[in-house]
Design a protein around this nucleic acid. Structure first.
Lengths: 107, 107
DNA sequence: ACGAGTGGTATCCGATGGGTACTACGATGG
DNA sequence: CCATCGTAGTACCCATCGGATACCACTCGT
């Protein structure tokens, strides 16, 4: 459980879905820096664990929407707090950490 | 930043330090299932990012204490909420997920 | 027949996670 | 004098994950 939520892309993806369903491409654009493979894996894992729904609209240009389940919506709350804490406290971290390419601040 | 906090062992380790300094062995026992190597790596990373302090007491049987910095203590709050949410909502997750060995519930 | 738009997979690689075994150190004890 | 214990790790190896780039499948419009 913690493995699932305590994960950068999971946390950000749920955040991106917080204000309505999103398509794959939208998520890819919102979550700057995610590769399609990782995004797919993340979404599949969240779906598998019942946090999001994946709906396919077999319309002309294929259309796939991801949306939060009630459980997913609930999970957003503590995750949003965590993200908010991070952005509010970025400047308290030691020098040099911000320039570390492994560290993203998560808008 | 999120990479750092949104990580199973980081979150649990900070939680374990919340009520006072701990020695390496104590942490190893508290965080059930962590291997010494991973624990070392986790603690080093937290130290590097200014969330914990590592103090060596060169006494008879060597003694190393890990403790939260003020920043680390602040970070505990949102993490504790996340952990609390998880334990409060375990039973809402789909069947079979709990038997997945990759998933730990985090006491 | 060709290119654009959408939602991915395939492939490769290096980093990370994880388990088991082993080390270094001085104290203690036979 | 050598063995053993407790503490805090390190060394080694393998599996999995994260990440980048390239490519595929489907259908519409031209």
């Amino acid at each position: 459980m913690l493995d699932l939520l305590a994960n950068k892309w999971s946390a950000l993806a749920l955040g991106a879905l917080e204000d309505g369903p999103r398509r794959f491409g939208e998520l890819r654009a919102r979550l700057e820096g995610v590769s399609p493979k990782v995004l797919t894996a993340t979404l599949r894992r969240l779906e598998e664990h019942g946090l999001i729904d994946r709906t396919v609209y077999p319309a002309v240009p294929l259309h796939v929407e991801y949306s939060l389940t009630p459980l997913g919506r609930d999970a957003c709350e503590p995750l949003a707090m965590l993200r908010r804490w991070v952005v509010a406290n970025v400047d308290r971290f030691p020098e040099g950490v911000l320039s570390d390419p492994r560290v993203s601040v998560a808008s």
